Amino acid sequence: MPYATNNELPPSVRQHLPPHAQDIYRAAFNHAFDVRLREPGGEERAHRVAWAAVKRSYVKSGEAWVQR
């Protein structure tokens, strides 16, 4: 299901990523979900796409995600 706001993101995303990274995650997820809507496992793949998008701009340093 697409996310309209960052508040709707899964807790694991909201609690660990800074707001800008959440924006990236949400946009990437929504796009990937729209493309893969009817494919089996589409939602799981959309989450993987979203994490990959975040990792292009952010890196985990200790417990925090910081911008590259």
Rank of each mutant, 00 (worst) to 15 (best):
R38M: 11
R26W: 03
Q15H: 14
Y3I: 02
A50L: 05
N30A: 08
N6S: 13
G62M: 09
Y3E: 07
V66E: 14
R38S: 14
H31N: 12
G62I: 04
N7F: 09
R45A: 15
W51K: 08
K55H: 14
N30E: 07
R14N: 09
P19V: 07
V35D: 12
P10R: 12
R68H: 10
R68G: 01
M1D: 06
D23H: 12
A32W: 04
T5M: 11
R56G: 00
R68T: 05
Q22S: 05
W65R: 11
H20M: 09
S12G: 13
L17G: 04
L9Y: 12
R14S: 09
A28R: 04
D34W: 00
G62A: 06
P2I: 10
L37C: 09
P19R: 13
H31W: 05
H31E: 13
R45H: 11
W51Q: 07
N7L: 13
N6M: 06
Q67E: 14
E8W: 08
V54K: 05
G42K: 05
A21K: 01
G62P: 03
G41N: 02
N7T: 13
D34F: 00
N30L: 05
K55G: 00
Y3W: 08
H20I: 07
R38N: 15
Q67V: 00
Q15D: 14
P2E: 12
F29P: 05
M1G: 02
P10D: 09
R45T: 10
K60M: 04
L37M: 11
H20G: 08
R36T: 10
H31K: 13
A52V: 00
A28S: 05
A21S: 01
V66G: 06
V54D: 03
E39A: 15
R36Q: 13
L9G: 08
N30P: 01
V59W: 03
R45G: 12
P10L: 12
A64E: 15
I24C: 03
R45M: 13
H31Y: 09
Y58S: 01
G62V: 03
L17S: 06
G42R: 09
S61Y: 01
Y3M: 07
R56V: 11
N30F: 02
F29Y: 15
F29T: 02
T5I: 03
S61P: 00
